[in-house]
């Protein structure tokens, strides 16, 4: 078995990788803080209970009950969502718990401050990464092409252990390419654009953008949905980091050096 090491991740790639890891974490937590101020999502322009997608609610009683309502289906989620940790050691009527929000206790003003600052951090990391990847030529290695599409199913079968060998590929396998392309060129820009359309001044300057997402509350729903999808991507990413040589993967994202071996090209 070979143990040849290759310099895979440039300093720009590693820096921006950790920067947006931090930015995403702060953005999710401060975003949930902001969400808590109006704990419901509507698929419409203005707020409209008839088009409600998701809502959280609490009911008085001893003890009180917390509810999560998804498309009209009500689930009891006391202590977790709806009636939960207030960030100060007690419980209160609140959608997301204090341990998941930034800051912990209820503070819309502070949540907005963190969110808007780290939105810039994410944007800058994203642009810096794309520029550096374009210059280094790594962009070509992970952007999916039509020739990768027939290899997607065989690759998935390999991951599911229904196939012995992964289909032949370059530095990154077709599923990795699909994921990276969707995240970098689909989800990140959509996340930023749906976030921008929550701003009344942006709506006035670019009304077509808000209309494209189905209106302001719909944009808020998309913004939240994209966060959920990105968390899904993040979990998949973590599973693959761990299962394809955790130390090799983490080291390569710190020092840049990746040791080729049996997991080459099937990693996170």
């Amino acid at each position: 078995m070979t143990s040849e090491a290759v310099y895979r991740h440039s300093i720009a790639a590693r820096t921006t990788h950790w920067l947006w890891t931090l930015a995403m974490l702060v953005l999710v937590m401060s975003g949930l803080q902001i969400f808590n101020a109006a704990p419901y999502l509507d698929a419409s322009d203005k707020s409209n209970p008839a088009r409600r997608v998701l809502a959280f609610d609490a009911q008085d009683g001893s003890p009180p009950t917390g509810y999560t309502i998804v498309f009209g289906h009500r689930f009891t989620t006391t202590h977790l969502f709806g009636y939960t940790d207030d960030g100060m050691g007690a419980e209160t009527a609140r959608a997301f718990p204090g341990w998941l929000t930034l800051p912990g206790p209820q503070s819309l003003a502070d949540g907005r401050r963190w969110h808007l600052f780290f939105a810039w951090a994410l944007f800058i990391a994203w642009v810096a990464y794309l520029i550096s990847a374009a210059i280094r030529g790594t962009l070509r290695e992970f952007v999916i092409r039509p020739s990768d599409f027939p290899k997607l199913l065989p690759m998935q079968l390999y991951y599911l252990r229904l196939r012995k060998e992964p289909p032949p590929h370059g530095t990154y396998n077709p599923l990795q390419k699909l994921a990276y392309t969707v995240v970098l060129f689909g989800m990140f820009p959509l996340l930023m654009l749906t976030g921008l359309t929550l701003s009344p001044a942006v709506d006035a300057a670019f009304p077509w953008l808000t209309a494209l997402f189905g209106g302001r509350q719909f944009a808020r729903t998309w913004h939240f949905t994209l966060m959920v999808l990105l968390i899904g991507y993040f979990c998949t990413h973590l599973v693959l980091v761990v299962s394809t040589g955790i130390w090799n993967n983490i080291r390569s994202m710190i020092t840049g050096w990746y040791v080729l071996g049996k997991h080459d090209g099937v990693g996170p």
Partner: peptide, 11 residues
């Protein structure tokens, strides 16, 4: 449309 900082909107 009136957009509240809390997140809701009304016309």
């Amino acid at each position: 449309r009136h957009d509240c900082v809390e997140g809701w909107s009304a016309i």
